[in-house]
Design a protein around this nucleic acid. Structure first.
Lengths: 196, 196
DNA sequence: GATAAAAACGATCATACGTTCGTTTCCTGA
DNA sequence: TCAGGAAACGAACGTATGATCGTTTTTATC
């Protein structure tokens, strides 16, 4: 046997990415074997290499794509919103929404950082830093206008991001808590926490 | 060659645990090979099995020990402290202190949960749940006395724990931010966040 | 319709892994 | 003091892994 009918490059790659995302999220990058991945996609192990460079590149591409999308979306979301308080609320809502929607990517993006090549890791950390800066900017401007009371912008940003990102580890869209309630609750915690 | 001079069981086991902790924290459980671990301790790979059952048991023992200590300490810390507000402050301070001091254990305790056998994982999750309950109790009592305003106790507890645990991923004891400042900043975020 | 590229197969390679085992040496307690 | 357990060695086992390669069939291009 050989090339199967109906096979197409982009479609197979998409399937590999989706299956890889799921497997890495579930069992972890190191624990995922390419044989497992291939089986899930419906390929022989060797055939994966028609679409990916290496296992490492698969991981990097997944995380990198996620970070680029995250940055683009947050900028689009904040576009045109005026005032630190409104911008902070918008940031919280966006962050939670995105992290609910793409919890697998987000989880992998932090849990598997150490599975990346130093060079790859550096690149991802830089993108993450850029995202953190979006929040830092908002906090800084709010503090300058005496709207927020913030001791240390960077540390506060880390604390808030940790809180908002935490939902990835437990949130279940089909669970007891609605998306709306989740956003309200976190928004209150954040706004009250930084209020002057 | 064979048994080396001065070797003793407990000492070697302690060395294995310390090296294992460090390796798992650095490269992850799956990525750590027992050969690497043995080399770090100064043993041949096979000799590890004089002290551990399996690689899996090594991981479980590390995490389990950490959880037991965590629970014992938080109870000791809260003992005799009256009033939800004071108890919450004490909880925050303790949590941060412990998570600074044992950041490797804490990190592994969450990041490597998925590397545990289902049975092992269940046991750890139960202990974690017990720890979460300590915070939930405080929040519940504070809400009952109208000292705190809390929509959903469990979700709020998760949010706060995520925030407070986040420091494990970035805090550097030799860095710019002092332990004192860190505690003050987080205490304020928490207390303002839940204030009625 | 011919030709080149794409996408799959299946076999295989070299290596690394967790674990076992027989043996040897050291330590400890009666 | 000496017997028996403890703690190490070093070799080995069986398996799984990431990756490569030659081949074959399908798809796409001119």
């Amino acid at each position: 046997m050989s090339r199967t009918r109906g096979s197409s490059g982009p479609k197979t790659l998409a399937a590999i990415n989706e299956a890889g995302l799921d497997l890495i999220y579930t069992v972890g990058y190191e624990a995922m074997s390419l044989r497992e991945l291939a089986a899930k996609v419906g390929l022989q192990p060797g055939s994966l290499y028609n679409h990916i460079e290496t296992k490492q590149d698969l991981l990097f591409d997944l995380i990198h794509n996620h970070m680029v999308v995250l940055l683009a979306r947050v900028d689009a979301e904040l576009e045109g919103i005026e005032g630190p308080a409104e911008r902070l609320k918008a940031f919280v809502a966006f962050h939670l929404d995105y992290h609910i929607e793409r919890k697998r990517e987000v989880f992998i993006g932090s849990a598997e950082l150490r599975s990346l090549t130093p060079k790859h890791r550096k690149e991802i950390v830089a993108l993450r830093r850029a995202y953190e800066d979006r929040l830092c900017d908002i906090l800084k401007k709010g503090a300058a206008k005496k709207l927020f009371r913030i001791d240390d912008v960077r540390v506060t940003a880390y604390a808030l991001l940790a809180m908002l990102t935490g939902i990835c580890t437990w949130y279940d869209p089909k669970g007891r808590v609605s998306r709306r309630k989740l956003i309200d609750l976190h928004t209150r915690l954040v706004m009250e926490g930084v209020a002057a």
